[in-house]
Design a protein around this nucleic acid. Structure first.
Lengths: 186, 186, 186, 186
DNA sequence: TATGAATGAGTGTTCATTCAT
DNA sequence: CATGAATGAACACTCATTCAT
């Protein structure tokens, strides 16, 4: 993939993360990238195609950083859990404004009226729950490990939603702390 | 408030719950209500004002059904918890399509670029957490009751998000079941 | 149908007759009508819908003037033939530029890639040939009357094409004269 | 002329015959030819120049096949007439879809707003009528031979228009049959 | 009160043409 | 000779809002 196309994806990903897919107008993307309409449509056939490419871009990032880099690493389950929580904090605390989870945002905005988006996003959550189930099994045994994994993922996504709505990262930190107590410290 | 205005709010609330605020066009609302533009602008000065009225409408519903009707009722904390979980299930399982939580949806769509929406929505979540803290204190003591309340609310909202993205209510039921075990059955 | 809608159809019909469907841009129509985009889309859902309305408009005109007014009138077959030829001349000679037959033009431009246009236009030609067959039967007997009707219609349409391409109405007058000799004068 | 340039003309001619000049996009032509933009603009300065080259290409084909090969051949006038009619049938019956006469199509699409196209196309029709006049003189004497030639050409072009609009070659065959009876069989 | 005609800035998209390599 | 990235004006269409009646 050409460098320019990558740059468009990255730049647009940031905008869409911050403002949402529909609210981010093509003209915003064009202005942010410093390109013209023609150049955009040289690389993408539509705004929707760019949107799907952005989901893929984030999916790859999660696969590399979270799934492969943490949950499937050779480290101890306690460390995996801890690093996952750290990763969640660092990912969502950084930006000036608290934009929320890129997948969570798109999940709510797109998944009901665009099946391609839904499937791509769903795959991320499924993989995450799947790998987390393994970690929780190692920590607390097989019993209800899958349910627990779902609960943790739901808790993190819900915490990010509350944080975004509260515009204060303290909520996220507090809930993450609660999860840590349940699976690591105790 | 006139009956007609109420009917517009209810009808529009359903549409916006299903399709989102931006995606629901004024013409959709007009058609669903069977009214003309003039009548709409007689009752509301803008689409945004309607949106805020819808948030108030849902807020009132939550206040009545969840806060007053359940969490502040005279029943035992166990029953309060159980009824809250039942209420969450019934609220999100019913619609043909799984549209998600009206507040969660609007929280993600609106709260970052419209402060009025954010504040109204945030108030709901705050009240919910506040009252749930009381219930959890009664169940498990004061220690970290507020953190636990946040975690439960986050879990429910996150569960609804996962459910919506999975288009299958099983996820929600499973996670609710996990919460029940933690606070009631055990 | 509202007066404004009629006016848009008439004005656009003239433009499209002169320049063709695709070459006539919406902005041309808007400028010629002195209206804005919003007003246009208040009356029509698309440019294509306007195009079909224009075909209907011309079809009605032909039905009234040619089919009912001439071919199905109570006059003698010779007079019917003569009036039809006069009508063809007057219809195509008048405009400053020789724009050709509105149906012939649209037939060639649209009929291959838009079935709705094709069917509407085809109906006109079919009706014309049908009624002309009756007239020719009255003039020269049943034998091959239908074939002769087809030939006359083809001749007129072909003559208009040659005239348009030659930008000189003499070709049309000459060919019409030939038809007259064959069916009336002799 | 280079072989590549010829190939572009032939390929584009087929596309434009089928879809029309405006509707055939440069990208369609490029894709069909398997070449890039640079190569196209090396051979042609614009799409319009290609269009004019295509008219020349068809004109040459008609000159060779119809004018020289049939109407100016040494054969009898009856055979010339018969071969001309056969040629018309074979030319328009073959393609899967009935695209109509390449000149007739372009005549209606282009001749009114592009003088260069009009003149080129008009020359073809003029030459055709001129040579056919000679043939008809040989068949039926000088009287009104030119008018008759015009009528036959108009009839053929009109028949092709009706055929295209009816999407059925039977109309063309029927009309050609009528011409045959008038000039050969009788 | 209520209608629906009218507005106009803005949307995503197209496409012949240019130009650096 | 040839590529394909880049341009930018134009296109059909949308929609919240206004306004004459």
């Amino acid at each position: 993939m050409s460098q320019k196309k990558q740059q468009i994806i990255w730049t647009a990903a940031k905008l869409i993360h911050a403002k949402g897919y529909e609210s981010t107008k093509l003209s915003d993307i064009l202005a942010a990238c410093g390109i013209g309409k023609g150049q955009f449509y040289h690389y993408f056939t539509s705004k929707r195609e760019l949107g799907l490419a952005i989901v893929d871009h984030y999916a790859q990032m999660w696969q590399d950083e979270l799934i492969e880099g943490i949950l499937k690493s050779g480290r101890s389950p306690e460390r995996k859990m801890e690093e996952m929580l750290q990763w969640a904090i660092q990912f969502h605390e950084t930006p000036e404004k608290l934009h929320g989870c890129p997948f969570g945002n798109l999940a709510l905005e797109m998944s009901e009226h665009d099946e391609d988006f839904r499937v791509k996003i769903n795959r991320i959550f499924s993989d995450w729950i799947e790998e987390l189930t393994q970690v929780i099994e190692a920590l607390q045994g097989e019993k209800q490990a899958r349910q627990k994994a779902r609960m943790v993922v739901a808790q993190i996504e819900g915490a990010i939603l509350l944080m975004k709505n509260n515009q204060d990262s303290e909520v996220l930190l507090d809930i993450i702390d609660g999860i840590r107590q349940e699976y690591i410290s105790s």
